[in-house]
Design a protein around this nucleic acid. Structure first.
Length: 618
DNA sequence: ATAGTCACG
DNA sequence: ACGTACGTGACTATA
């Protein structure tokens, strides 16, 4: 049904408002001019309320060509649709609701009653597979929908698509969304109530919180970055000139291939300190550091690498991503990308803003709160190690956390068998504590700490003796990955693993304790998979916990109408902007919410910082 | 498109 | 004896 006038629209509304059956949600989808919800204009809306061919409607709104067909003024659509759209008792199903929510939000429309997001449901069932509507339809029905690029020519937008074609395309999308929604719900209900709970209680409630964070965006000090850019460019020119002088020839410093030839052929530097890649000699930071004292050119190359990275990825990139309308950058938090349950951030990625060196940290000065407000950063202290202590049941570790002791120092004391330790020795404890979470071996331990491989081996063995339950837990995860085909987090999130059916795949269904792990770890790829399996419950549980905290925190902000905005999530850290007058009250709420998001056998600890920019707040 | 590199937790 | 520290996204070069 193609909506052609107000009467059509009225009759559509009458059909959909009747429904409040949660097992028969109504599918809705927006068509727009841009993938970026902050630039996109609304072109049309599709709605599907049943499985019949007449249970579909398309509302054309913003097509540029409207030959022979009417469009409905945006104002009318908003007025007529808003009561149903914002009614939480009217069940709806969407594919990637966050996108449509942001589109609606920009047009003053509130979306409520999303009882299923097909993208998130598909992600929860198996995070490894693809979650686009087209891919799900191919997989579940063997049906390939018309591709977007077949409909919209290069350089054009959906607004250029004729209304009839658009209605068929959008109609198919909403039809599929509804059908997939019903199918995936049944699958979850029958096969895993725990996963359904994770979807309904954590992932779906988080979606509007993320939408809110993205819509708010974060303020950027553009003039400051421009100044920084000029300084970095000037320095880069000088360094480049020096490098070319020393090497005696002009070449592209940004080309690893050309740089490798200069270092290991022209200058004849020690090839044993590098390794071969598919394209030539490796020139990564490890190689360069090994060569550092061999030739005066190396420090200059390292400096050039660091500065050009910072310039192109952050200093010059961020101002370009400031939205004209809001003067802020609006990242995209992707909720259905990672294998472990973490979020990811893109366009720009605000989860990898530099911090590790004094100079790079300066970039954080460019992240500002709303005028006259403050930035508040709150991060979980050692959350992954605490989760490991909880999951493994390792009492000594749990006791130390309960007594607010220094876990890294304790580990160092145990490994070195002495009562008092130096700062460097504590660092060794820290490296091992974090290393075991990733399945680190003796070689890596010796390389990252400078101790001998024999010593590293000794420390790992001793760690295993003194923390037996940690290793039992990690090994169990590997056994479960092999015999059960997946591992799980505290909240039941699954990460599936696939092994070659002629090899380790044959272990599926076997008794997990009858497996020889040394045999399983034979191949490089298999060993890598098993380390990932041991790590996933830890990383994934951490993701579960911070997601719960975010939902709860936003709920409190809304309920108390607090002058605070959640802005960023960086895996174990939340960044907010808050009115300074309510700072202490809000800080308390943030800390309490994060620390009490879940109850484990060890306490969770949250540390905070406040400042006029992100550098000061950390 | 892929490879190499490097920013973060 | 030796592989072999987990998870991401963005940039540049090169094909």
């Amino acid at each position: 049904m193609l909506i052609q006038n107000i009467e059509d629209l009225d009759s559509l509304i009458r059909k959909i408002v009747k429904n409040s059956n949660p097992s028969q949600p109504i599918a809705i989808d927006t068509e727009t001019t841009d993938l970026n919800p902050f630039k996109a204009e609304l072109v049309g809306i599709g709605i599907c309320w049943g499985s019949g061919t007449n249970d579909l409607a398309y509302i054309p709104i913003g097509h540029n060509i409207s030959n022979n067909y009417n469009q409905i003024p945006l104002e009318e659509v908003i007025n007529k649709l808003s009561p149903w759209l914002s009614d939480k008792r009217k069940p709806k199903v969407l594919q990637n609701a966050k996108y449509d929510r942001l589109i609606f939000l920009r047009h003053g429309l509130t979306l409520k009653g999303v009882i299923l997001d097909t993208m998130l449901a598909d992600y929860i069932i198996d995070p490894n597979r693809k979650h686009s509507l087209d891919e799900i339809a191919k997989r579940e029905f063997g049906f390939t929908p018309q591709g977007f690029s077949d409909l919209v020519k290069k350089g054009e937008t959906f607004a250029e698509v004729d209304i009839l074609s658009a209605s068929l395309y959008c109609g198919m999308d909403v039809y599929l969304t509804r059908k997939i929604g019903i199918l995936l719900t049944e699958e979850l209900e029958q096969e895993s109530p725990k996963l359904l709970n994770l979807l309904k209680e954590i992932e779906q409630p988080l979606e509007p919180v993320l939408a809110q964070m993205e819509a708010t965006g974060i303020r950027i000090d553009v003039p400051y970055l421009k100044k920084l850019s000029a300084e970095i460019q000037e320095r880069l020119m000088k360094v480049e000139k020096n490098v070319h002088n020393i090497s005696g020839q002009l070449f592209n410093l940004a080309s690893p291939k050309q740089l490798g030839e200069i270092l290991f052929e022209t200058l004849q530097l020690d090839r044993k300190k590098s390794r071969r890649t598919k394209t030539g000699w490796s020139t990564d930071v490890n190689v360069l550091e090994r060569l550092e004292s061999d030739h005066e050119i190396i420090p200059l190359i390292i400096e050039h690498r660091v500065l050009s990275k910072l310039l192109s990825t952050y200093v010059d990139a961020l101002p370009q991503l400031v939205e004209e309308e809001t003067k802020r950058v609006h990242t995209d938090f992707n909720q259905a990308v990672t294998a472990t349950g973490r979020l990811s951030s893109s366009n720009p990625n605000l989860q990898n803003i530099p911090i590790r060196t004094e100079f790079s940290r300066q970039i954080r000065k460019a992240f500002l709160p709303k005028e006259n407000w403050s930035l508040l950063s709150a991060d979980y202290s050692q959350i992954e190690l605490r989760i490991l202590a909880h999951l493994s049941g390792e009492e000594s570790l749990q006791e130390t956390y309960k007594k607010k002791g220094d876990v890294h120092a304790m580990t160092a004391k145990i490994l070195l068998e002495k009562e008092s330790i130096s700062l460097d020795e504590r660092r060794l404890g820290k490296t091992i504590n974090f290393g075991v979470i990733y399945g680190m071996g003796a070689q890596r331990l010796s390389r990252s700490t400078g101790i001998s491989q024999a010593e590293a081996k000794h420390f790992l063995n001793r760690y295993k003796e003194r923390y037996p339950k940690i290793f039992a837990f990690l090994e169990l995860q590997e056994r479960l990955a092999l015999t059960q085909g997946y591992v799980t987090t505290i909240f039941g999130r699954r990460r599936p693993f696939k092994f070659n059916p002629n090899g380790l795949g044959r272990l599926l269904g076997k008794d997990p304790f009858e497996i020889d792990l040394n045999l399983a770890r034979r191949g490089g790829l298999e060993a890598q998979q098993l380390r990932a399996a041991a790590n996933a419950p830890i990383q994934g549980s951490s993701a579960d916990i911070i997601k719960i905290a975010m939902v709860e925190l936003q709920r409190k902000i809304d309920e108390e109408n607090l002058p605070a905005h959640l802005l960023l999530q960086v895996h174990d850290e939340l960044v907010l902007e808050t009115d300074i007058h309510a700072l202490n009250h809000i800080k308390n709420i943030v800390v309490n919410t994060m620390e009490n998001a879940v109850s484990l056998s060890v306490p969770l600890l949250v540390e905070t910082g406040v400042g006029d920019n992100w550098m000061e707040a950390k």
